[in-house]
Design a protein around this nucleic acid. Structure first.
Lengths: 197, 197
DNA sequence: CCTACCGATCGGTAGG
DNA sequence: CCTACCGATCGGTAGG
Protein backbone atom coordinates (compact mmCIF):
# COMPACT_ATOMS: atom_id res chain seq x y z
CA UNK A 1 0.00 0.00 0.00
CA UNK A 2 1.26 3.43 -0.89
CA UNK A 3 1.36 5.97 1.92
CA UNK A 4 -1.24 8.70 1.65
CA UNK A 5 -0.02 11.74 -0.25
CA UNK A 6 0.51 14.76 2.01
CA UNK A 7 -2.29 17.30 1.76
CA UNK A 8 0.25 19.94 0.87
CA UNK A 9 3.84 19.47 -0.10
CA UNK A 10 6.26 19.86 2.77
CA UNK A 11 7.71 22.89 1.04
CA UNK A 12 4.33 24.60 0.80
CA UNK A 13 3.76 23.74 4.46
CA UNK A 14 7.07 25.34 5.41
CA UNK A 15 6.21 28.46 3.40
CA UNK A 16 2.84 28.75 5.08
CA UNK A 17 4.12 28.34 8.61
CA UNK A 18 7.07 30.63 7.99
CA UNK A 19 4.76 33.28 6.58
CA UNK A 20 2.66 33.25 9.74
CA UNK A 21 5.80 33.58 11.87
CA UNK A 22 7.31 36.29 9.69
CA UNK A 23 4.12 38.23 10.06
CA UNK A 24 3.84 37.80 13.83
CA UNK A 25 7.49 38.38 14.79
CA UNK A 26 9.07 39.86 11.69
CA UNK A 27 11.52 38.14 9.36
CA UNK A 28 14.69 38.93 11.29
CA UNK A 29 13.25 37.93 14.65
CA UNK A 30 11.99 34.57 13.38
CA UNK A 31 14.51 31.77 13.81
CA UNK A 32 14.71 28.64 11.73
CA UNK A 33 14.60 26.63 14.96
CA UNK A 34 11.28 28.22 15.87
CA UNK A 35 9.96 27.41 12.42
CA UNK A 36 11.20 23.83 12.65
CA UNK A 37 9.62 23.34 16.09
CA UNK A 38 6.31 24.63 14.78
CA UNK A 39 6.48 22.02 12.04
CA UNK A 40 7.54 19.26 14.39
CA UNK A 41 11.02 18.67 13.07
CA UNK A 42 14.65 19.64 13.64
CA UNK A 43 16.19 22.84 12.36
CA UNK A 44 18.64 21.11 10.06
CA UNK A 45 15.88 19.15 8.39
CA UNK A 46 14.35 22.27 6.91
CA UNK A 47 17.23 22.46 4.50
CA UNK A 48 16.23 19.31 2.66
CA UNK A 49 13.26 21.30 1.39
CA UNK A 50 14.49 24.84 1.12
CA UNK A 51 17.79 26.49 0.32
CA UNK A 52 17.69 29.34 2.80
CA UNK A 53 15.52 31.46 5.05
CA UNK A 54 15.50 34.25 2.51
CA UNK A 55 14.33 31.91 -0.22
CA UNK A 56 11.02 31.60 1.63
CA UNK A 57 10.66 35.35 1.92
CA UNK A 58 11.47 35.68 -1.77
CA UNK A 59 8.77 33.23 -2.77
CA UNK A 60 6.16 34.92 -0.59
CA UNK A 61 6.91 38.44 -1.77
CA UNK A 62 7.14 37.69 -5.47
CA UNK A 63 4.24 35.27 -5.37
CA UNK A 64 1.98 37.92 -3.99
CA UNK A 65 3.22 40.48 -6.46
CA UNK A 66 2.05 38.12 -9.21
CA UNK A 67 -1.37 37.81 -7.60
CA UNK A 68 -1.78 41.57 -7.40
CA UNK A 69 -0.83 42.04 -11.03
CA UNK A 70 -3.14 39.25 -12.15
CA UNK A 71 -6.02 40.81 -10.21
CA UNK A 72 -5.44 44.22 -11.71
CA UNK A 73 -5.15 42.82 -15.24
CA UNK A 74 -8.44 40.96 -14.89
CA UNK A 75 -10.17 44.04 -13.47
CA UNK A 76 -9.11 46.24 -16.36
CA UNK A 77 -9.57 43.69 -19.14
CA UNK A 78 -12.65 45.40 -20.49
CA UNK A 79 -11.06 48.67 -21.58
CA UNK A 80 -14.39 49.87 -22.95
CA UNK A 81 -15.93 49.88 -19.45
CA UNK A 82 -16.17 53.19 -17.57
CA UNK A 83 -12.93 53.97 -15.72
CA UNK A 84 -14.89 54.15 -12.47
CA UNK A 85 -16.00 50.56 -12.99
CA UNK A 86 -12.49 49.40 -13.80
CA UNK A 87 -11.20 51.15 -10.70
CA UNK A 88 -13.88 49.61 -8.55
CA UNK A 89 -13.01 46.16 -9.88
CA UNK A 90 -9.31 46.80 -9.34
CA UNK A 91 -9.98 47.81 -5.72
CA UNK A 92 -12.07 44.70 -5.18
CA UNK A 93 -9.40 42.49 -6.76
CA UNK A 94 -6.75 44.05 -4.54
CA UNK A 95 -8.87 43.47 -1.45
CA UNK A 96 -9.52 39.90 -2.50
CA UNK A 97 -5.79 39.17 -2.64
CA UNK A 98 -5.29 40.85 0.73
CA UNK A 99 -8.04 38.86 2.43
CA UNK A 100 -7.32 35.53 0.78
CA UNK A 101 -4.04 35.38 2.69
CA UNK A 102 -3.57 38.27 5.03
CA UNK A 103 -0.41 36.80 6.58
CA UNK A 104 1.32 36.62 3.22
CA UNK A 105 -0.01 40.10 2.44
CA UNK A 106 1.45 41.52 5.63
CA UNK A 107 4.80 39.95 4.78
CA UNK A 108 4.56 41.34 1.25
CA UNK A 109 3.83 44.80 2.63
CA UNK A 110 6.34 44.98 5.46
CA UNK A 111 9.07 42.34 5.25
CA UNK A 112 10.31 42.83 1.68
CA UNK A 113 13.10 45.05 2.92
CA UNK A 114 14.84 41.98 4.31
CA UNK A 115 15.36 40.76 0.77
CA UNK A 116 18.99 41.15 -0.22
CA UNK A 117 20.04 42.65 -3.50
CA UNK A 118 19.22 42.34 -6.30
CA UNK A 119 15.87 40.91 -5.22
CA UNK A 120 15.06 43.94 -3.13
CA UNK A 121 15.47 46.34 -6.03
CA UNK A 122 13.49 44.05 -8.33
CA UNK A 123 10.72 43.89 -5.79
CA UNK A 124 10.53 47.64 -5.42
CA UNK A 125 10.38 48.00 -9.18
CA UNK A 126 7.37 45.66 -9.26
CA UNK A 127 5.66 47.57 -6.47
CA UNK A 128 6.27 50.87 -8.23
CA UNK A 129 4.85 49.47 -11.42
CA UNK A 130 1.73 48.32 -9.62
CA UNK A 131 1.23 51.72 -7.99
CA UNK A 132 1.75 53.33 -11.37
CA UNK A 133 -1.07 51.21 -12.82
CA UNK A 134 -3.50 52.65 -10.29
CA UNK A 135 -2.19 56.16 -10.81
CA UNK A 136 -2.62 55.92 -14.56
CA UNK A 137 -6.10 54.52 -14.22
CA UNK A 138 -7.07 57.43 -11.99
CA UNK A 139 -5.42 59.86 -14.38
CA UNK A 140 -7.45 58.48 -17.28
CA UNK A 141 -10.55 58.75 -15.11
CA UNK A 142 -9.84 62.41 -14.44
CA UNK A 143 -9.17 63.07 -18.11
CA UNK A 144 -12.47 61.39 -18.99
CA UNK A 145 -14.20 63.55 -16.40
CA UNK A 146 -15.38 60.47 -14.53
CA UNK A 147 -13.22 61.10 -11.48
CA UNK A 148 -12.00 64.18 -9.77
CA UNK A 149 -8.91 64.57 -7.60
CA UNK A 150 -6.48 67.44 -7.10
CA UNK A 151 -3.59 65.08 -7.77
CA UNK A 152 -3.76 61.60 -9.27
CA UNK A 153 -0.50 60.48 -7.65
CA UNK A 154 -1.73 61.61 -4.27
CA UNK A 155 -5.06 59.92 -4.82
CA UNK A 156 -3.42 56.64 -5.85
CA UNK A 157 -1.13 56.68 -2.82
CA UNK A 158 -3.90 57.30 -0.31
CA UNK A 159 -6.17 54.80 -1.99
CA UNK A 160 -3.60 52.00 -1.81
CA UNK A 161 -2.66 53.05 1.70
CA UNK A 162 -6.25 52.66 2.86
CA UNK A 163 -6.48 49.24 1.29
CA UNK A 164 -3.12 48.07 2.56
CA UNK A 165 -4.07 48.77 6.14
CA UNK A 166 -6.53 45.93 5.86
CA UNK A 167 -4.21 43.08 6.86
CA UNK A 168 -3.61 44.97 10.11
CA UNK A 169 -7.22 44.64 11.23
CA UNK A 170 -8.84 42.02 9.02
CA UNK A 171 -10.06 38.90 10.85
CA UNK A 172 -11.17 36.01 8.64
CA UNK A 173 -13.81 35.14 11.24
CA UNK A 174 -15.15 38.70 11.46
CA UNK A 175 -18.69 39.81 10.70
CA UNK A 176 -17.88 41.11 7.24
CA UNK A 177 -17.06 38.74 4.43
CA UNK A 178 -14.12 39.58 2.15
CA UNK A 179 -16.60 40.62 -0.53
CA UNK A 180 -18.50 42.87 1.91
CA UNK A 181 -15.23 44.53 2.85
CA UNK A 182 -14.19 44.89 -0.76
CA UNK A 183 -17.51 46.54 -1.66
CA UNK A 184 -17.49 48.88 1.30
CA UNK A 185 -13.94 49.97 0.74
CA UNK A 186 -14.58 50.53 -2.94
CA UNK A 187 -17.72 52.49 -2.08
CA UNK A 188 -16.06 54.72 0.45
CA UNK A 189 -12.88 55.36 -1.51
CA UNK A 190 -14.70 56.01 -4.74
CA UNK A 191 -17.10 58.27 -2.86
CA UNK A 192 -14.33 60.83 -2.59
CA UNK A 193 -13.29 60.44 -6.20
CA UNK A 194 -16.46 60.26 -8.26
CA UNK A 195 -17.50 63.38 -10.08
CA UNK A 196 -21.25 62.87 -9.69
CA UNK A 197 -22.23 61.08 -6.53
CA UNK B 1 38.02 76.39 30.76
CA UNK B 2 34.96 74.16 30.63
CA UNK B 3 34.57 71.97 27.57
CA UNK B 4 31.78 73.01 25.22
CA UNK B 5 28.47 71.38 26.04
CA UNK B 6 27.41 68.79 23.44
CA UNK B 7 24.73 70.07 21.11
CA UNK B 8 22.54 67.17 22.14
CA UNK B 9 23.01 64.82 25.03
CA UNK B 10 24.75 61.60 24.10
CA UNK B 11 21.59 59.73 25.02
CA UNK B 12 19.46 61.78 22.66
CA UNK B 13 22.08 61.25 19.97
CA UNK B 14 21.93 57.49 20.51
CA UNK B 15 18.13 57.55 20.30
CA UNK B 16 18.22 59.51 17.08
CA UNK B 17 20.76 57.32 15.35
CA UNK B 18 19.09 54.14 16.59
CA UNK B 19 15.74 55.38 15.30
CA UNK B 20 17.16 55.87 11.83
CA UNK B 21 18.66 52.36 11.88
CA UNK B 22 15.51 50.77 13.28
CA UNK B 23 13.57 52.34 10.49
CA UNK B 24 15.97 51.32 7.74
CA UNK B 25 16.70 47.74 8.84
CA UNK B 26 14.06 46.98 11.45
CA UNK B 27 14.59 46.66 15.19
CA UNK B 28 15.61 43.00 15.25
CA UNK B 29 18.04 43.33 12.36
CA UNK B 30 19.81 46.33 13.87
CA UNK B 31 22.79 45.39 16.01
CA UNK B 32 24.19 47.43 18.85
CA UNK B 33 27.59 47.17 17.19
CA UNK B 34 26.21 48.80 14.06
CA UNK B 35 24.70 51.53 16.16
CA UNK B 36 27.95 52.05 18.06
CA UNK B 37 29.97 52.24 14.83
CA UNK B 38 27.58 54.84 13.44
CA UNK B 39 28.21 56.92 16.55
CA UNK B 40 31.97 56.41 16.47
CA UNK B 41 32.31 54.36 19.61
CA UNK B 42 32.54 50.77 20.84
CA UNK B 43 29.51 48.58 21.44
CA UNK B 44 30.06 48.27 25.17
CA UNK B 45 30.23 52.01 25.59
CA UNK B 46 26.59 52.41 24.63
CA UNK B 47 25.60 50.90 27.94
CA UNK B 48 26.96 53.83 29.95
CA UNK B 49 24.09 55.82 28.46
CA UNK B 50 21.29 53.35 28.00
CA UNK B 51 20.13 50.25 29.79
CA UNK B 52 19.16 48.11 26.84
CA UNK B 53 18.32 48.06 23.16
CA UNK B 54 14.64 47.80 23.93
CA UNK B 55 14.78 50.85 26.18
CA UNK B 56 15.47 52.95 23.09
CA UNK B 57 12.52 51.45 21.24
CA UNK B 58 10.33 52.06 24.26
CA UNK B 59 11.27 55.73 24.42
CA UNK B 60 10.67 56.26 20.72
CA UNK B 61 7.29 54.52 20.67
CA UNK B 62 5.85 56.09 23.79
CA UNK B 63 7.35 59.49 23.05
CA UNK B 64 5.58 59.58 19.72
CA UNK B 65 2.34 58.41 21.27
CA UNK B 66 2.50 61.46 23.52
CA UNK B 67 3.04 63.73 20.53
CA UNK B 68 0.03 62.31 18.72
CA UNK B 69 -2.20 62.73 21.74
CA UNK B 70 -1.01 66.28 22.33
CA UNK B 71 -1.70 67.18 18.72
CA UNK B 72 -5.19 65.75 18.82
CA UNK B 73 -5.98 67.49 22.09
CA UNK B 74 -4.86 70.85 20.70
CA UNK B 75 -6.87 70.33 17.52
CA UNK B 76 -10.08 69.61 19.39
CA UNK B 77 -9.65 72.17 22.15
CA UNK B 78 -12.36 74.43 20.75
CA UNK B 79 -15.32 72.11 21.20
CA UNK B 80 -17.66 74.78 19.88
CA UNK B 81 -16.00 74.70 16.46
CA UNK B 82 -17.63 72.67 13.66
CA UNK B 83 -16.66 69.01 13.82
CA UNK B 84 -15.34 69.24 10.28
CA UNK B 85 -12.95 71.96 11.41
CA UNK B 86 -11.82 69.94 14.41
CA UNK B 87 -11.27 66.92 12.19
CA UNK B 88 -9.30 68.97 9.69
CA UNK B 89 -7.10 70.31 12.49
CA UNK B 90 -6.64 66.82 13.91
CA UNK B 91 -5.57 65.53 10.51
CA UNK B 92 -3.12 68.38 10.13
CA UNK B 93 -1.74 67.81 13.63
CA UNK B 94 -1.28 64.12 12.88
CA UNK B 95 0.54 64.91 9.65
CA UNK B 96 2.71 67.44 11.43
CA UNK B 97 3.90 64.81 13.90
CA UNK B 98 4.53 62.35 11.06
CA UNK B 99 6.58 64.82 9.04
CA UNK B 100 8.50 66.35 11.95
CA UNK B 101 10.27 63.03 12.45
CA UNK B 102 9.34 60.48 9.85
CA UNK B 103 11.96 57.98 11.05
CA UNK B 104 10.53 57.95 14.57
CA UNK B 105 7.05 57.77 13.06
CA UNK B 106 7.94 54.73 10.98
CA UNK B 107 9.34 53.05 14.10
CA UNK B 108 6.19 53.97 16.01
CA UNK B 109 4.06 52.49 13.26
CA UNK B 110 5.95 49.29 12.52
CA UNK B 111 8.46 48.34 15.23
CA UNK B 112 6.28 48.49 18.36
CA UNK B 113 5.68 44.76 18.16
CA UNK B 114 9.26 44.18 19.30
CA UNK B 115 8.37 45.68 22.65
CA UNK B 116 8.15 42.96 25.27
CA UNK B 117 5.27 42.70 27.71
CA UNK B 118 3.81 44.57 29.41
CA UNK B 119 4.98 47.50 27.28
CA UNK B 120 3.55 45.99 24.13
CA UNK B 121 0.07 45.72 25.56
CA UNK B 122 0.27 49.22 27.02
CA UNK B 123 1.32 50.55 23.66
CA UNK B 124 -1.55 48.89 21.84
CA UNK B 125 -3.98 50.30 24.38
CA UNK B 126 -2.67 53.80 23.65
CA UNK B 127 -2.96 53.25 19.92
CA UNK B 128 -6.50 51.96 20.28
CA UNK B 129 -7.43 54.97 22.36
CA UNK B 130 -6.04 57.30 19.73
CA UNK B 131 -7.97 55.58 16.95
CA UNK B 132 -11.08 55.74 19.10
CA UNK B 133 -10.67 59.51 19.39
CA UNK B 134 -10.86 59.86 15.64
CA UNK B 135 -13.74 57.44 15.40
CA UNK B 136 -15.75 59.34 18.01
CA UNK B 137 -15.04 62.66 16.34
CA UNK B 138 -16.32 61.28 13.04
CA UNK B 139 -19.33 59.78 14.80
CA UNK B 140 -20.21 63.15 16.30
CA UNK B 141 -19.77 64.72 12.88
CA UNK B 142 -22.20 62.24 11.37
CA UNK B 143 -24.71 62.82 14.19
CA UNK B 144 -24.43 66.58 13.65
CA UNK B 145 -25.03 66.02 9.94
CA UNK B 146 -21.71 67.63 9.10
CA UNK B 147 -20.12 64.45 7.83
CA UNK B 148 -21.44 61.41 6.06
CA UNK B 149 -19.98 57.91 6.04
CA UNK B 150 -21.58 54.49 5.95
CA UNK B 151 -19.53 53.43 8.95
CA UNK B 152 -17.58 55.70 11.32
CA UNK B 153 -15.17 52.94 12.37
CA UNK B 154 -14.41 52.14 8.77
CA UNK B 155 -13.96 55.79 7.95
CA UNK B 156 -11.59 56.33 10.87
CA UNK B 157 -9.51 53.31 9.93
CA UNK B 158 -9.12 54.30 6.29
CA UNK B 159 -8.43 57.90 7.23
CA UNK B 160 -5.60 57.00 9.58
CA UNK B 161 -4.32 54.41 7.14
CA UNK B 162 -4.01 57.04 4.42
CA UNK B 163 -2.16 59.36 6.77
CA UNK B 164 0.11 56.68 8.16
CA UNK B 165 1.37 55.76 4.74
CA UNK B 166 3.06 59.13 4.65
CA UNK B 167 6.36 58.13 6.31
CA UNK B 168 6.76 55.58 3.55
CA UNK B 169 6.99 58.19 0.83
CA UNK B 170 7.60 61.55 2.53
CA UNK B 171 10.91 63.21 1.71
CA UNK B 172 11.82 66.25 3.84
CA UNK B 173 13.49 67.79 0.78
CA UNK B 174 10.51 67.20 -1.51
CA UNK B 175 8.55 69.84 -3.35
CA UNK B 176 5.70 69.92 -0.87
CA UNK B 177 6.19 71.42 2.59
CA UNK B 178 4.76 69.54 5.56
CA UNK B 179 1.97 72.10 5.74
CA UNK B 180 1.19 71.70 2.04
CA UNK B 181 0.95 67.97 2.53
CA UNK B 182 -1.19 68.34 5.62
CA UNK B 183 -3.60 70.64 3.78
CA UNK B 184 -3.83 68.43 0.73
CA UNK B 185 -4.40 65.29 2.72
CA UNK B 186 -7.03 66.98 4.85
CA UNK B 187 -8.69 68.30 1.69
CA UNK B 188 -8.78 65.00 -0.09
CA UNK B 189 -9.82 62.90 2.89
CA UNK B 190 -12.51 65.31 3.99
CA UNK B 191 -13.68 65.53 0.40
CA UNK B 192 -15.13 62.05 0.74
CA UNK B 193 -16.63 62.77 4.15
CA UNK B 194 -18.20 66.20 3.96
CA UNK B 195 -21.95 66.37 3.51
CA UNK B 196 -21.97 69.48 1.35
CA UNK B 197 -18.94 69.83 -0.85
C1' DC C 1 14.64 13.71 8.34
C1' DC C 2 18.19 13.43 12.41
C1' DT C 3 22.63 14.11 14.95
C1' DA C 4 26.27 16.74 15.61
C1' DC C 5 28.40 20.50 14.67
C1' DC C 6 30.56 24.96 12.28
C1' DG C 7 31.92 29.95 12.49
C1' DA C 8 29.72 34.20 13.19
C1' DT C 9 27.30 37.27 15.68
C1' DC C 10 24.22 38.68 19.12
C1' DG C 11 22.96 41.77 23.62
C1' DG C 12 25.09 42.81 27.50
C1' DT C 13 28.73 43.03 31.57
C1' DA C 14 33.08 43.56 34.54
C1' DG C 15 36.64 46.21 35.52
C1' DG C 16 39.11 49.81 34.69
C1' DC D 1 34.36 55.49 27.01
C1' DC D 2 37.49 51.18 26.08
C1' DT D 3 39.21 46.31 26.42
C1' DA D 4 38.14 41.92 26.94
C1' DC D 5 34.97 38.88 27.43
C1' DC D 6 30.42 36.02 28.68
C1' DG D 7 26.74 32.63 27.40
C1' DA D 8 23.27 32.24 24.04
C1' DT D 9 21.72 31.87 19.69
C1' DC D 10 21.93 32.43 14.89
C1' DG D 11 21.72 30.35 9.70
C1' DG D 12 23.42 26.69 7.65
C1' DT D 13 26.22 22.10 6.53
C1' DA D 14 28.23 17.22 6.57
C1' DG D 15 27.30 12.77 6.83
C1' DG D 16 24.37 9.48 7.46
Amino acid sequence: MATAAPIRSRKAQIDRTATALFRARGFAATSMRELATELGLEAGSLYSHIKSKEEILHRVCFGLAEDFFAGFAAATLDTAAPIATQLRLAIEAHVRVLTRDSAASAVFLHEWRHLSEPARTEFLALRDRYEASFRELIQRGIAANELHAPDAAFAALTLLASLNWLPAWYRPDGKLSPDDIAHRLAEQLLGGLLTNK
